[in-house]
Nucleic acid binder design. Structure first.
Lengths: 346, 346
DNA sequence: CCCCGCAGGTTATACGTAAAACTCATCAGC
DNA sequence: GCTGATGAGTTTTACGTATAACCTGCGGGG
């Protein structure tokens, strides 16, 4: 740990160990088997440790033509869901000695420049959320291994896809609400044109269509109305829910595509003098920290955000290694809380 | 845009433009004044555009010994505040053609490895939140330009410091509460040993001490009790607030160090049958999205998170350019909302 | 007329690493 | 005693860029 002077290079280590630079390179990357004697290996390792040697990654990247760096493209980190996706992806990356660089969209508007302009390095691969629509066309043309999160499994540009089991999430939600006696159901969507939310709408439709005629207890069949929020935020949810709750007949349950929207819906209900869940039930999606901060706490579908990020990185690593990339569908779980309850007689 | 084959290099551009590689380098970095004729400049630029040339950053970094990359060290991106700090820092970095790599602490526990082990590149500088205590000692020894966020201005290791005006934030909060008639004030701190929260405690003490004896309207002087939450979360706030609200005489106002804690405090109050703000007022810090999602909405001190990140990056850029680094204190603003109200006669 | 200065380039080299090609003993086998 | 293989390294080169040092005409001043 003689920490004086500039960074030591592999040549410095070589000098200290009395060997050539090539030997240092071989030893430190564990490619010495059958080429270097154990004694020499030890002395090289000791010298490296002594000098506090760290390989210069710029030089390594230049030599290898690869950077061991992945680009993660998400709409915005201020969305807790994507912050958690990043957490998971970064953890797995660190375990495999990969770097992660972020390309979040600047606050919903288009990108300042294209992702490869702003990327700090030649990239080895890309993991992108389908919500980051702004960047997708550029990514497809990048010729890089691409893993899509929350996107169609048949996307031809994607080497792999990672999805939460939205269909099951909506099934659980519908079963929960029908079981509570709800028949007039409203769907509050995010009004964002992405596979993510289109998929939720389809999943909800399918779940309702799969309901035995008249619902589990033989009542009238469920009906659905749908409204899109202007933006993915509490305020957006509030405005859209106010519209829904003003319509007649009033829905008794609101299925929201996101916890932010659900929180807004609860606020809207209260402003209209409606109690949650006595007068109207509200369910969300994601299980953000928000869900247990509001009162009543939100019944919501917990999506495994970290696992999605981690699975995305695993898939990318597989592609980079030339292995067959998995295309997992991750399980989700409805978490019943206070915002949903039995349907009051209307 | 002949996009076939491997990435073009500056030598390819040189060939296409009929000049030497050195000339290409000069032209594309705008260092040609007085050394290259305007006509040649144009032909080089045209060739670069035609080939879709992008400089190889690994090679550039190797040559220059600098990477134009900054490390941002924060506790966790899932904390909305730090996600916003990152947003601001990344925006400024992009404007100056700098890269940002993140080093978030893995979920509150110590780092997997030291920051320089995991950093993807030789770094030019570091911006660190004082809450990322786990990494600080390593950072100090890194010998890199260091900008501290939310930290003591006299930190000898820091080349610059960026702080929100906590003292003013607490002054505004105290003035607000005293104006509403509150005298028994409780402080709910985060129980995290960092300058951030120690500073808030000092700022609150100072604000109370500066109060004219007996408060603005001549009533009895304000009193303060203080409790630390076990963790920086809604649940942590709930537990700690339950303790505070169970004590006699019961405080009439809770000043919380963070909106998460404040949201938890509101929940605790309601569980004890207390109304917010009629029976107890609650204020927060940060103005997270959460603050307007809960009901009542939180009175809170809005911290300019993006600006903090941006100012940190500006300071780092200044240091890297050898300029005098600014050490700004950014203004904050109390946002009065529904969680604070007049003190009911006790 | 010669040398200078300058515009407008070019040549050569270094950055630190990885890896292919090469060296040089030693030793087994025939 | 010579061949060939093997172990244990070394030498050399390439990756793509930035920049210092070097050329080469050409017009003007002395």
């Amino acid at each position: 740990m003689t920490s004086a002077g500039p960074r030591p290079t592999s040549r410095d280590v070589a000098r200290a160990a009395g060997v050539s630079q090539a030997t240092v390179s071989l030893v430190l990357r564990d490619k010495w088997h059958g080429r270097v004697s154990p004694a020499t290996v030890e002395s090289v390792r000791a010298a490296a440790r002594e000098l506090g040697y760290r390989p210069n990654l710029a030089a390594r990247s230049l030599r290898l033509g690869r950077t061991r760096t992945a680009l993660l493209v998400v709409p915005a980190l201020t969305n807790e869901f994507f912050a958690r996706v990043h957490t998971g992806a970064a953890r797995v990356a660190a375990e495999h000695d990969l770097g992660v660089v972020l390309y979040p969209s600047p606050e919903g508007v288009g990108p300042a420049r294209d992702p490869f302009e702003s990327a700090r390095a030649t990239l080895d691969g890309v993991i992108a959320s389908s919500m980051a629509a702004h960047a997708l066309s550029a990514l497809r043309e990048g010729g890089l291994p691409l893993v899509m999160l929350d996107s169609s499994p048949d996307d031809p540009a994607a080497a792999a896809t990672v999805n939460p089991d939205l269909a099951d999430g909506m099934r659980q939600t519908v079963a929960h609400l029908l079981g509570l006696g709800h028949r007039r159901i409203a769907h509050l969507t995010a009004g964002i044109d992405s596979w993510t939310f289109a998929g939720r709408a389809r999943a909800l439709d399918a779940a309702l269509a799969a309901t035995p005629h008249g619902g589990p207890d033989g009542g009238p069949p469920p009906t659905l109305v749908r409204t899109a929020a202007a933006e993915l935020s509490v305020t957006g949810g509030l405005r859209a829910a106010a519209r829904l709750l003003g319509s007649r007949p009033r829905p008794t349950a609101l299925v929201c595509d996101d916890d932010l929207l659900a929180a807004g819906a609860c606020k809207a209900a209260r402003r209209l003098g409606l109690r949650v869940p006595e007068d109207v039930s509200v369910t969300g999606f994601d299980d953000l920290a928000l869900a247990t901060a509001v009162e009543p706490e939100l019944t919501t579908v917990r999506l495994p955000a970290e696992e999605i990020g981690a699975a995305g990185m695993h898939a990318l690593l597989a592609v980079l290694d030339g292995r067959q990339a998995p295309t997992p569908v991750l399980p989700v779980q409805l978490v019943p809380r206070g915002s949903s309850g039995p349907c009051a007689a209307s």
